[in-house]
Nucleic acid binder design. Structure first.
Lengths: 338, 338
DNA sequence: CTGAAAGCGCTTACAG
DNA sequence: CTGAAAGCGCTTACAG
């Protein structure tokens, strides 16, 4: 039990020679208070190292002073990927500036989902940022309808969703990747796709196809092999592609993990990169710069996207009616695989 | 403003036909209550989806129901590495089982450090888990002395520290790595070390040297090149080593990021792996399995270590006087670089 | 075992 | 602008 003697509002009021109400007014911000009183209170608070008791404050304001960052399901895998930690980091930074706590919530079981729903509806957090929502998970929408400010990382799968989101411009990014491969002289460009039941998977494939079309390349479904955003998936898909198209000389993998798998498959097949085959990934995960050879990839501004997510919930928490979706620009980072 | 009508203890008491005190007793656990009353209260609570108001509870119990996971300083770099997210994930899981919230705190500036110190001393969290402490940062010890339960990820640099910690068995892990290289027939084994102002850097070098000594290999300071746990550092150190020891045929890098850099340097120098040179990393970061070729490495059970950290703070929070340090075993994961 | 009551530390109308 | 007072939703001695 730390500091049995933590200073209270009363003690700073006493020291400043004003009432608790006045002290409270200067410390909690807004109300008009005389310059004299304000200074005295601030001085007293500083001298006592006063920190308001958040529990007491919450009890009356019905604001918890915290926002949940919720991760749905495949926890460990998710944490091992770099996307999540970086979104988290961005959101945390933004929230910290407003002195709101970021509470990390992981939902694996049905019980946990139910408990969180009650918890959130009970006003124990002021808002929620969902990362990694699967398919058309109704939870975010539910909570929103219950009046809780909610935002999503990634465009929702469900077209009818009215939950604001921030997403990278996946279509444009994939187009950039394809264009780059073509510009580098590739003649037979293939792609390892993400899961087709995820928007991000669909969009990156869509961008790739659109760019080939723009270059008057004939599209063929066999040019794409499905992956699952994992290294193993990327390796397997690349092996299949190699079999199908012995003459392939360009690979666009829909994320860096799969691109790493592609690099492994290519090395195993004795193809040199970028000599025989050029490869582009997506995300600019830390692993991209660590690959052999270092991977050319499409960067998405993940940390900035995390900040944006936080900014959006906060606006909603502050009473703003609605908030526009944001689609963040991507950028090609050329390294050694092209 | 979610659910203006969140059920309170009073409403469940009324529905159950008992007093608020009785309802409180059954819901908050311990006290003896008649079976009848208990059932009625539980039923009423379930029907109303009652969730206790944590703010009100905290106000009286002086327990926040939350634990801080604090990260010191080099935020983004730290988040990009896989160690942190995995510790976080383990700690979160363990905390969730006890229904305590994990609040993520990042301390970059001096102001933030001071604010957090006041905040923690003010009882706004029940305990703190420090990850990534630099050198002999006095903050954890400070807080501990102020009565806050604190635990550390990694053995403290400061010998005088009395803060409990959990660490991987770095010495043993490094010995395993060196032994493996030697057993695979390497004759000239070198190492890329971590920063020498970090315990983990020192320990991994110590283990490496000890194992060479055990194999009656003559030690030479030039066999070690300093890295900084980054890919670039690993690449540069390996280049230096290659220059110094043209005949090197085994590299132990003190973490996987640097091992990835070593792989890049070796490829650039035209050395094949594992044909000409064998390489072992440390951590078994996700990047290890994604490397080309897939990296042999020493795994540390990071998620389990995160859980252990949480278990330890919780024990301290529950009033346990002290808690023993834990040193987690490591394990060699052989892949394709050896 | 159970109820009435006090009190945790704030915020915020309500008067003045 | 400022103070006295009520009240947020719990927990916990204190009686019974």
């Amino acid at each position: 039990m730390p500091s049995q003697s933590a200073p209270t509002l009363d003690s700073v009021a006493a020291r400043a020679g004003v009432s608790r109400a006045t002290a409270g007014r200067v410390l909690s911000g807004y109300a008009r208070v005389s310059e004299n009183a304000r200074e005295a209170v601030l001085k007293a608070a500083a001298e006592l190292s006063y920190v308001p008791n958040q529990a007491a404050r919450s009890l009356v304001t019905r604001r918890s002073g915290s926002v949940a960052l919720v991760v749905v399901e495949p926890v460990e895998r998710f944490f091992a990927d770099s996307y999540f930690p970086l979104v988290l980091s961005g959101a945390q930074a933004q929230l910290a500036e407003r002195e709101v706590q970021l509470v990390l919530v992981v939902l694996s079981t049905q019980r946990e989902r139910e408990r969180f729903e009650r918890y959130a509806r009970g006003g124990h957090v002021d808002g929620a940022i969902f990362v990694s929502v699967h398919g058309a998970d109704p939870l975010p929408q539910h909570l929103r309808e219950a009046g809780l400010p909610v935002v999503l990382s990634g465009r929702p799968y469900d077209e009818g969703s009215s939950v604001p989101f921030v997403s990278a411009d996946n279509v444009a990014g994939a187009r950039t990747a394809a264009a780059h491969l073509l510009e580098r002289g590739c003649r037979r460009v293939v792609t390892v796709t993400g899961p087709m039941d995820m928007r991000v998977g669909q969009e990156r494939l869509e961008g790739f196809r659109a760019e080939l079309r723009a270059h008057r390349q004939r599209w063929n479904a066999a040019l794409a092999a499905p992956g699952d955003f994992s290294v193993d998936g990327g390796r397997a898909a690349t092996e299949a592609l190699l079999e199908r198209w012995p003459d392939l000389d360009g690979v666009f993998a829909a994320n860096d993990l799969m691109a790493a798998g592609a690099l492994q498959a290519l090395a195993a097949a004795g193809r040199s990169v970028p000599g025989d085959v050029r490869v582009v990934g997506f995300d600019d995960a830390p692993l991209a710069a660590a690959a052999t050879p270092p991977l050319t990839t499409v960067r998405q501004p993940v940390i900035a996207m995390g900040r944006e997510l936080a900014r959006m919930v906060l606006a909603l928490v502050d009473g703003q009616e609605s908030v526009p979706d944001v689609v963040a620009p991507t950028e090609l980072v050329q390294r050694a695989t092209t």
